[in-house]
């Protein structure tokens, strides 16, 4: 074999993997990278999109956003909404998963519960929003039940009063999102060997000790992964909030996503909207890097 032939062979071998990857690289580039880079570039332009010859704006739009108290309120609401959602998704998901995994509950009842618990997952965000709008209407079912029980004295405008709106949307989102945790944790629970619990029984562990010493440590990888993913996803929740409250009343449920949407499609200030979107991107990116590092570490 000549040297030339051999080097050509080697070249082929080096290039081949990239050739195989190229279709997906091109698609990722077109569908993900290009829009992302475009949005980033918009955030540094004056009158992005709306003018054909946009001028360079530097950090102007970022300064404008950071100077806007509504932005900071949105950021705070986003954090509250996200943290509460993730914590309760996890807690409720865990409780339900433990129930569904328990031998002490009658199997028929367990199957019925399994279907009931998973229901919120079957609905799209829009339907969930509509359901909760109807339920939490001032004249809706929730108020009427609470009044019958004597828990509240007058009708509460859950979504329409600034004091309750953020809690109400957070509640709706908690309801909508726990099945992800439930299903993942249930799968995890079913993967924990029964021996662990039997060994603990013999060693004298009480119910809560089995939970803290075995179940939770065993589920930790799932809990961390799903929490991080949930955090990233919940931060970007838009349809649910948009349809239930539209960020109102006043600005009480304005989150980064609705804030950005309004800048873009109500004010047509696409430059500032892009800047706001970049801020969301950076926060998500931070979390994603954390997630990737965690995944690698495992």
């Amino acid at each position: 074999m000549t040297r030339q032939k051999r080097s050509r062979h080697r070249l082929k071998r080096t290039v081949a993997p990239y050739l195989y990857l190229s279709p997906s690289l091109v698609i990722i580039g077109l569908l993900m990278l290009l829009p992302m880079v475009t949005v980033i570039s918009y955030s540094f332009q004056n009158s992005a999109v709306l003018r054909r010859d946009p001028s360079f704006a530097g950090l102007k739009h970022y300064q404008a956003i950071f100077a806007d108290p509504v932005f900071w309120a949105s950021l705070w609401h986003t954090l509250y909404f996200t943290c509460m959602s993730v914590v309760f998704h996890m807690t409720i998901g865990m409780i339900f998963a433990l129930m569904l995994n328990s031998d002490r509950i009658n199997p028929t009842l367990r199957n019925i519960l399994r279907v009931l618990y998973i229901l919120p997952w079957l609905f799209t965000a829009v339907i969930i929003a509509v359901i909760w709008r109807l339920l939490l209407e001032p004249n809706g079912v929730v108020n009427s039940i609470l009044m019958q029980l004597g828990l509240i004295g007058s009708k509460i405008e859950w979504f329409s009063s600034p004091e309750t709106a953020l809690h109400a949307v957070t509640f709706a989102n908690i309801w909508a999102g726990y099945p992800l945790f439930m299903v993942s944790l249930l799968a995890g629970l079913q993967g924990i060997p029964k021996d662990f619990y039997e060994a603990a029984d013999i060693d004298g562990a009480k119910g809560y000790q089995k939970l803290t010493f075995i179940t939770i440590p065993q589920l930790m990888p799932i809990i961390i992964s799903i929490s991080l993913l949930d955090f990233i996803w919940t931060m970007q929740v838009f349809p649910l909030i948009w349809i239930t409250t539209g960020g109102g009343p006043i600005y009480s449920t304005e989150v980064l996503s609705t804030y950005t949407y309004k800048l873009a499609f109500s004010s047509y200030n696409l430059s500032q909207a892009s800047a706001s979107a970049v801020v969301i991107l950076l926060i998500s990116l931070g979390l994603t890097l954390f997630y990737i590092r965690y995944q690698k570490a495992r």
């Binding site: 979504f159 329409s160 709106a165 409250t245 006043i250």
Partner: peptide
């Protein structure tokens, strides 16, 4: 103030 408006104004 007279309570004549149907509640839920802010999200209606």
């Amino acid at each position: 103030d007279a309570g004549t408006i149907s509640p839920g104004i802010a999200t209606k």
